[in-house]
Amino acid sequence: MISMRRVLAAMAPIALAAVLAFAATGADAASIHRSYSYYSVSGKTAADLDKSLSRGGHLLKSTGQRHPGAAQIRFDAKARYGSNGKACRVTGVYVNVYAKVFLPRWKQRKTASPELALVWDTLSRDIKRHEESHLVIARSHASEIEREVRALPSRPDCSLLRQDIDKVTQRIMKDHETAQKRFDRIETLNFEKRFERLLTYRLEREFGKLN
Score class of each variant (00 low, 15 high):
55 R>I: 07
157 D>E: 10
68 P>K: 00
156 P>D: 10
94 Y>M: 06
116 L>V: 07
176 H>Y: 04
151 A>P: 03
63 T>S: 07
128 K>L: 13
211 N>W: 11
19 V>R: 06
209 K>E: 11
128 K>S: 14
121 D>L: 09
76 D>A: 06
6 R>G: 09
184 D>A: 15
89 R>H: 08
56 G>M: 12
64 G>D: 10
208 G>D: 06
154 S>M: 00
112 A>G: 05
124 S>P: 05
174 K>P: 07
119 V>R: 02
147 R>F: 00
172 I>T: 01
182 R>C: 08
58 H>G: 00
121 D>N: 10
184 D>K: 05
24 A>R: 13
175 D>K: 12
11 M>F: 15
101 V>T: 05
192 E>I: 08
17 A>C: 12
127 I>P: 03
77 A>H: 04
127 I>H: 04
19 V>C: 08
172 I>S: 00
4 M>A: 12
96 N>P: 05
211 N>E: 10
77 A>C: 10
73 I>Q: 05
109 R>Y: 15
22 F>T: 11
73 I>W: 02
50 D>Y: 04
87 A>Y: 01
34 R>I: 06
88 C>L: 01
138 A>P: 11
195 F>P: 00
69 G>H: 00
133 S>F: 09
102 F>D: 02
143 S>Q: 13
29 A>I: 12
124 S>E: 10
109 R>H: 10
200 T>L: 11
27 A>E: 12
168 V>D: 03
166 D>Q: 08
57 G>W: 04
152 L>Y: 01
1 M>V: 12
7 V>G: 04
190 N>P: 02
100 K>M: 15
147 R>S: 14
142 A>W: 04
171 R>Q: 11
146 E>M: 07
103 L>V: 08
43 G>D: 05
186 I>V: 14
143 S>D: 15
89 R>C: 04
29 A>L: 14
81 Y>G: 00
16 L>M: 13
152 L>M: 05
170 Q>H: 08
85 G>S: 02
71 A>W: 03
181 K>S: 09
8 L>H: 09
18 A>N: 03
30 A>K: 03
30 A>C: 14
108 Q>C: 08
110 K>T: 15
7 V>P: 00
41 V>S: 01
15 A>E: 09
24 A>L: 11
18 A>L: 08
66 R>V: 01
87 A>F: 05
68 P>D: 06
16 L>F: 14
152 L>N: 03
180 Q>S: 13
51 K>Y: 03
90 V>L: 03
61 K>A: 09
34 R>N: 12
87 A>H: 05
101 V>F: 04
195 F>K: 03
70 A>H: 02
54 S>F: 08
136 V>A: 13
171 R>V: 09
191 F>P: 02
40 S>F: 10
28 D>N: 12
201 Y>M: 14
23 A>F: 05
118 L>K: 01
98 Y>A: 13
142 A>I: 03
149 V>R: 01
75 F>S: 09
206 E>Q: 14
211 N>A: 13
111 T>F: 13
128 K>T: 11
191 F>C: 03
69 G>P: 01
203 L>M: 07
99 A>V: 11
108 Q>G: 08
49 L>H: 00
125 R>M: 11
105 R>P: 06
130 H>D: 09
122 T>S: 15
19 V>A: 08
199 L>Y: 06
104 P>F: 01
2 I>Q: 00
51 K>A: 09
53 L>I: 08
119 V>P: 00
95 V>A: 01
65 Q>R: 13
48 D>Y: 05
20 L>E: 02
93 V>T: 05
121 D>H: 14
35 S>F: 10
180 Q>R: 15
64 G>P: 07
